[in-house]
Amino acid sequence: MIAKRSGRKSILANFGAFSQPKAEASDSFVPKDHSSPSGQPLARVGAGVIGATQRSLAELREERDSLRALVDAGGGSELDPNLIDPSPFPDRLPDDSDTEFEALKKLILDEGQKVPIQVRRHPISEGRYQVVYGHRRWRAALELGIKVRATVLSLSDSELVVAQGIENAARQDLSWIERALFAWRMDAAGIKARDIRAALSIDDPELARLRSVCRALPVDVIETIGRAPRVGRPRWVALASAVSEDPSALARVQRTLSSDKGLLLSSDERFKHALAAVRKPQPQSRDEKEIKGPAGRVVGKATFSSGDIKISIVTEYASAFSNFVEEELPMLMERFFVREGEG
């Protein structure tokens, strides 16, 4: 029987035995006291999750003990990665570069897989599994053609997303839009709001913001932009609001993202171009001046705006004035560059 600890501890501490501490890039062990080798404590999920889930401390402790028992009973196995499918609730968008993943593959090839992934038995397909977390290590084993070390659990969808979310909170490297998509996919699968809040360690207002962005922006547009790790909530909300308010804005974003140039940019840069595409151009200030003859009669007008000059002359002088400007233009430009100090 596992002793129950005080409810004052964070959710991550309560699920400590369930969440295998790890670092994807280094694939190395972390001491059991949940400290890094340097002695610094690992990132923890805040105690505010308790309020967000709207469940009693007794229920949370009971669920913790249940999941911990499943982990203890699961042990470790070596599985064929071809028998494993990704989580039904994707929480990752592709990286702009495969450099880190290739480094992880090389590390596993040279030193072996030190930290097991966690999988659950597939709820539909007999003999298959689904990743709870450890997708990159699973993918590395798949590409290397080797077996993957795994802890096998029996989890419901709700238990899976809570476990997956706790692991992500420990790493703290999901971008804001990845969190939004994770919440959106859980919503679509019928996961209860309290479990979504627990998985992401968020409150109701933040969940509402995540949902609002995914309602306004089609998933394919978000996936085309990508992780955008440097783009936070305010700019994603601004993009979603602009698309909601202007029916033509989404088409402009899609055209921008489908351009050859757009595909070569980083995800952060693709977001910047998408945001620029939805912003309505500001009307250029224009200054109009009358052109008068010697007797004060208005014979034309000149219109000046940013990078644009237009001169119109009444018909009787138009041809002669055009020839005059053509002849005088070289001298006019010479005077201009002298004044600018470039003559």
Rank of each mutant, 00 (worst) to 15 (best):
I2W: 02
L12G: 12
G16D: 14
F18S: 14
F18P: 00
S19G: 02
F29Y: 05
K32Y: 11
S35G: 02
G39E: 01
A47H: 08
V49K: 07
I50W: 07
T53A: 14
Q54E: 05
L57A: 11
E63F: 07
D65Y: 04
S66H: 10
L67S: 04
G74F: 08
S77Q: 13
I84E: 09
P94Y: 03
E102S: 02
A103C: 02
A103T: 02
L104S: 00
K105A: 00
K106H: 00
K106D: 01
L107Q: 01
I108K: 03
L109N: 01
E111A: 02
Q113G: 03
Q113F: 11
I117L: 04
R121C: 08
H122E: 15
H122W: 14
P123V: 15
S125M: 15
R128F: 15
Y129I: 04
V132G: 13
Y133M: 04
W138M: 10
A140F: 01
L142Y: 08
G145I: 03
I146F: 03
K147M: 11
V148L: 06
A150P: 08
T151W: 06
L153R: 15
L153P: 07
S154Q: 14
S158K: 12
S158P: 03
L160G: 09
Q164S: 08
E167P: 00
E167C: 14
A170V: 04
L181V: 09
L181I: 13
A183R: 05
R185T: 01
A189T: 10
I191R: 11
D195L: 05
I196D: 05
S201N: 10
I202K: 05
D203W: 02
D204V: 02
P205Q: 11
E206F: 03
A208G: 08
R215Q: 15
D220V: 12
V221D: 09
I225S: 00
R227P: 00
R230Q: 06
R230W: 01
R230C: 04
R235V: 00
V237L: 13
A242W: 02
E245T: 08
A249N: 06
D260F: 10
G262Q: 03
L264G: 14
L264I: 00
S266A: 07
S267Y: 03
R279P: 04
R286Q: 15
E288F: 07
G293C: 05
R297A: 11
R297P: 05
S305D: 12
I311D: 10
F321W: 14
S322V: 10
F324D: 11
V325T: 08
M331Q: 14
L332Q: 08
E334Q: 10
F336I: 07
F337L: 11
R339P: 00
